[in-house]
Write a protein that binds this DNA or RNA. Structure first.
Lengths: 209, 209
DNA sequence: GTCTATACTGAGATAGAC
DNA sequence: GTCTATCTCAGTATAGAC
C-alpha cells in the first residue's frame, strides 16, 4: 500500500510532537499506525531518516511561503530600509498557519530548534531561508553592527523555538479563535522591541568572525 | 569510596552538557569515570535521579545568589518600580558566573530548559526563584498587563535557554576575557527592549487564567 | 516492490554474591 | 559498598513470503 508510508509519517509526526523524538519508540509508532516494524526501515531506512523526511514534507511549503513574503517585502520597499515587523512576520506567520493545520508538527519543530536541528535537515532545507532572512534583517536594521545582529537573531531563535513548543505552563489560553496567530503577534511585538533596543555598554570587547 | 559518587557526578555533568542527556549512555559515563555500572544505580537509583541530583548540586547556589540579588534590589528601590535591567541581571548574572566555573553545567541547563525541565526539579528547586522573579518583573513593569507579562517571560525563557546552550553557529566569538558575561550583557539589552515594547494590536482577544 | 518474522546489539534496570 | 550476571526493551539488519 502507498499509504503505509503516509500512515507512518502522520503517526510519527503526532508522537514526536507530543512526546519528543527520543522518547518515542519505533514500536510505539508501528502499534499506533498498525504497520510492521520493518516497514519503517523499508520506507525510510532509519528513525533519523524518518524524522528528516517528516520535517521536509511540511517545512518545504512553509519555507517557500517565507521566501515569497520576503520577496514581496523587498519589492515594496525598494531602496528604503525594510519594515522590521514585516520581516518578522514573513518568518513567523507561515509557521503559524502551519500550526493551525498541524499543531504537533510545529511543536516538533520547536523541539528540534531547541535541541539542535539535525545538521542535514538544516543545511539542506533551511539554509536558503536563513540566509534570506538574515539579509532582510540587515536591511531592516542597517545601523545595527553585524555581530550584534547575529546575536539578536540567536536570541530570537530561542524565543521562537520555545514559543513553538507551547504556551507557558502558568497560563491557560483559550482556544479561540486562532491561538497561535495571537501568540505570534505577541512574539513579534516583543522581538521588535528587542531588535531595536540600544546597544549594551560593555566592559570588554568581543570579536566576531 | 566517597568520591565514587563525585566522580560520577562530575563525569555525567560534562557528558550530559556536551552531548545531551538522552545521547549519553550510562556505560559511557562509567567508562569515563572508571566505575562500575551498578554503582550509578547504587548511588542514584536511576539515570534520571542522577540528572536531578547533578542539577540540584549546582543550581542551589545559583538560585540562592539570585534571591539575594532580588532582595537587594527590592530593598534599594523601596516603593518605586524596580529597575528592569537590574532584575534581569539578578536572574542572569549568577548563571553567568556559574558558566565561568562549570561551562558544561550551564550548557546542560540550557538544554534542560529547552527540552522541558524535569517537573520534579522544576517544582522542588526552581519554584521559589521563579515566583520571586515574576513578582519582581511585575514591580519593574507595573503598567504591563499580567498575561502579556507572562508571555514575555515565556519568550525570555526561550532566549535564555538557547543562549545558555551556546553561541550562534555562524559567529565565532573570542574566548577573552569573559565570553559568557558579555553574552549576558547583550541578552539583557535585547530582553529589556522586548519587555518595554508597546503592546501588539490584536484582532482577537485571548483570556489568561 | 512491499511487507512479515525474527535475530542482533546496546540501552537502562535489578537481584544477589562478596 | 561494590560488582557480576541477567532481564527487558530500544533501534537496527536481514532473509524470505507474497
Amino acid at each position: 500500500m502507498i499509504d503505509t508510508k503516509q500512515k507512518i509519517l502522520d503517526t510519527a509526526e503526532n508522537l514526536f510532537g507530543a512526546k519528543g523524538y527520543d522518547a518515542t519508540s519505533l514500536r510505539h509508532i508501528i502499534t499506533e499506525a498498525g504497520v510492521n516494524l520493518a516497514a519503517i526501515h523499508y520506507h525510510f531506512g532509519s528513525k533519523e531518516e524518518l524524522l528528516d523526511q517528516l520535517i521536509v514534507r511540511r517545512a518545504g511549503p512553509v519555507n517557500e511561503k517565507r521566501i515569497a513574503l520576503l520577496d514581496q517585502i523587498e519589492a515594496e520597499a525598494g531602496a528604503a530600509p525594510l519594515p522590521l515587523e514585516k520581516v518578522l512576520e514573513a518568518l513567523l506567520v507561515p509557521m503559524s498557519e502551519a500550526a493551525d493545520r498541524n499543531p504537533e508538527f510545529v511543536r516538533l519543530m520547536g523541539r528540534m530548534h531547541a535541541e539542535g536541528m539535525l545538521p542535514s535537515v538544516l543545511n539542506t532545507h533551511f539554509q536558503q531561508v536563513i540566509a534570506r532572512f538574515v539579509a532582510a534583517m540587515r536591511k531592516a536594521l542597517p545601523e545595527l553592527p553585524e555581530h550584534e545582529l547575529l546575536w539578536r537573531i540567536h536570541f530570537m531563535t530561542g524565543a521562537m523555538a520555545h514559543t513553538m513548543c507551547g504556551p507557558p505552563d502558568y497560563t491557560r489560553v483559550s482556544a479561540e479563535p486562532s491561538p497561535f496567530r495571537s501568540r505570534i503577534a505577541r512574539l513579534i511585538a516583543f522581538l521588535s522591541g528587542g531588535f531595536r533596543a540600544p546597544l549594551p555598554q560593555q566592559d570588554h570587547i568581543e570579536v566576531s568572525q
